[in-house]
């Protein structure tokens, strides 16, 4: 099974690179960062603003979702009465099951007009960050919850015997003990944020530019592929596959980083 999965993955990667090759060969790698704009039908292929957009939206969402997700897991495990914790857990699981297009739709008809009233036009980096944070929150909350669950009960009993306050136990013992699992949750969530397409496509405004504020619209690499793939021909199409290669490289980089940081630690 693992071999099949690995072969399939390799095949996809080869396919994406092969499709991207004509653009890389004919346009040249430098064009993808040095051209004046992204207007593929006019022969301009600057991907840089979209790479920045992808990174900003994802980083924003992750930094918003980490405190919320950890907070909710801590609440579930250490503060809430069992009945409430179980109800709350179901709620978070429900949140994880909502399709991304539904988040996007809600964002488009509710969140974006709200932001528009605050600071026009509305579709913006901020809208993308909020929607994505909501979407990856369950991933972080559930993995954090599961890793707290796996901390040996003796740790908790020990801190109680030593007279730790509840917050002291969470902060000094539980968080460090569950560190590896928490890190994995964050990596998973970041991966989902980088790859998310429909929701960000609907709320981010999709203007190709490096945003100058939280209220400026941005386009992500994934949104770029989804918006233009169906209508792209020849080099334009190939340039979209270059976006795909960049995304693959981004996620591979993320995994490599995670491997370095968490790789050698045993899971509790």
């Amino acid at each position: 099974m693992a071999a099949i999965a690995a072969t399939l993955l390799l095949w996809i990667a080869c396919f994406v690179v092969a499709e991207a090759w004509p653009a890389i060969a004919q346009v040249g790698i430098s064009s993808f960062v040095a051209d004046t704009s992204w207007n593929p039908t006019e022969g301009l292929y600057n991907l840089w603003p979209m790479l920045v957009g992808t990174l900003l939206v994802s980083l924003g969402a992750v930094s918003l979702a980490i405190p919320l997700g950890l907070g909710s897991a801590v609440f579930c495990q250490f503060y809430a009465p069992p009945l409430l914790a179980s109800l709350y857990r179901r709620l978070i699981e429900l949140l994880a099951g909502i399709p991304s297009v539904v988040y996007g739709f809600w964002g488009l008809v509710t969140l974006v007009p709200l932001i528009g009233k605050l600071h026009p036009p509305g579709p913006s980096l901020l809208a993308g960050v909020i929607i994505l944070a909501l979407m990856i929150l369950p991933t972080i909350a559930l993995t954090a919850d599961a890793s707290f669950e796996q901390v040996p009960p003796s740790y908790r009993q020990g801190t109680e015997a030593l007279g730790f306050s509840r917050w002291g136990m969470v902060w000094r013992v539980m968080l460090p003990a569950a560190r590896s699992g928490l890190g994995t949750g964050v990596v998973l969530a970041t991966g989902r944020a980088l790859g998310e397409t429909m929701a960000v496509l609907m709320v981010c405004g999709n203007v190709v530019q490096v945003p100058d504020s939280l209220f400026a619209p941005v386009r992500t690499l994934t949104a770029n592929i989804a918006l233009e793939m169906a209508y792209a021909l020849d080099l334009h199409r190939s340039a979209l596959f270059v976006s795909g290669v960049v995304l693959l490289a981004l996620v591979a980089g993320l995994i490599a980083l995670a491997e370095i940081v968490f790789g050698r630690e045993a899971v509790p």
Partner: peptide
């Protein structure tokens, strides 16, 4: 909880 899983779960 191996980090490599994110590649398959995304």
């Amino acid at each position: 909880t191996h980090p490599f899983q994110s590649l398959f779960l995304n």
